[in-house]
Write a protein that binds this DNA or RNA. Structure first.
Lengths: 230, 230
DNA sequence: TGTTGTGAACGCTTTCACAGCT
DNA sequence: AGCTGTGAAAGCGTTCACAACA
């Protein structure tokens, strides 16, 4: 959760910067030059004080009485997040989800080209999906070296996920995005983000059940707040 | 973030219950009968005090000096999360990701059958993917009624996501899982969880960059902690 | 005048530490 | 003796409210 830091930015703020960035990119496309904390707050679904605090961690880049400059803030957020360069991604697990992610626009368009996809199933190795050929997980070390991979995405079955993680770490990868529904055991020098789609639905289920039990009509009734996104 | 409640369980604890459940289900499969907070903590990658607090919100279901019973705790967690029943899911957006999710085992196996998939692209409507035929988003209201849908999953482009959300809400859906990289504007009576794959990678990028700048060797060096999963 | 930047207050979450049971 | 359950303390994150300043 904490790391050695240049300037200490809270993890919670770091997690929101990509959302602000997304919104500012949209504003830039529509030629908006400036924004206030109020405006960004409304678009991001948070409150203005939070936006100001978050942006203040980057430095004092606003102008009192005026607001912030869109392009300058985009630059600062990208710099802070390490997005001035591309980060190459390898997908481990060439099932439906893995192949869909390998083709997924959202990765490349945000600076994360998928440069490889591997599996351990001989039936899948050699298949071509979009512009990639499925490689052998045994070659991971070479692929990571040759393609300068920085991030591994695990889309295997849960049974295979830990050994996928081990292979990535063995190959020198220190950033892992895991879609398998297991908690990976990794050294503390490796960053893991765990996206469990089942978990997301189960959390929704809890709040949905609560709405049913407390008898909220499915018509929009006020003053029950949105979960997620914080 | 807060809702009307039966017994107040903190949101942070709710978000961990599915992870415990996952682990306990694995223990049950291997015929483990009991566990201690220490054991579950190690498997979940959290500390034992947190496990005990989290489980205590469900009631006092442990035995001092002994531990907790696996099957009984599974039952209690499922009851609390609303998993004693199935929740039907409809996917909006029949692109690569949407089709992959519709086929995804992880949903059905955890009690979330995907009963429909829709799109607004006439070229996609009518196609068959796994056992489902892509429907017209204009029929969403009927599908939700006929198939008793509880949860909507949005896998459209970001441009179409807001109107997909509007259509779901119009059809009476109050739980949405959104994969499009936009912040949805929804009434507060609707629960939204936002999974932005680009955002996940950008957060990893920040910590990866920090490791590079602070000169951590890619060999496992101690005392930098894992991010995510909390 | 309008909006930022930020100490201080508040509230939520985690952790500690130990009393209470088995 | 061992492990749970839980008040109390500590740690974070959010929000308030206003001084600073263009």
């Amino acid at each position: 959760m904490t790391q050695l830091q240049r300037r200490k930015i809270p993890d919670a703020a770091i997690a929101r910067l990509p959302i602000y960035l997304q919104i500012l990119n949209n504003l830039a496309v529509t030629n908006v030059l400036r924004f206030s904390s109020d405006e960004l707050a409304a678009l991001a679904g948070v409150n203005a004080a939070k936006v100001r605090k978050d942006l203040s961690y980057l430095g004092s880049y606003g102008t009192r009485g005026v607001g912030y400059e869109v392009t300058y803030l985009i630059y600062q957020i990208k710099r802070e997040l390490g997005l001035m360069r591309e980060w190459n991604v390898v997908v481990v697990g060439a099932g439906n989800l893995g192949c869909a992610l390998a083709k997924f626009d959202g990765f490349l368009s945000r600076g994360f080209p998928v440069v490889g996809i591997v599996d351990n199933d001989p039936k899948k190795i050699g298949r071509t999906t979009s512009s990639l050929t499925v490689g052998d997980v045994a070659d991971l070390k070479n692929i990571v070296r040759d393609e300068k991979v920085n991030i591994g995405v695990i889309t295997t079955s849960s049974a295979a996920a830990q050994s996928a993680a081990d292979a990535l770490i063995e190959a020198g990868i220190t950033s892992i995005l895991n879609f398998a529904p297991v908690v990976l055991s990794t050294p503390s020098s490796v960053s893991v983000r765990h996206v469990d789609l089942g978990v997301e639905l189960q959390i929704l289920s809890y709040y949905e059940q609560m709405r049913i039990e407390t008898g909220i009509k499915s018509d929009s009734s006020p003053e029950l707040s949105k979960v997620g996104v914080q």
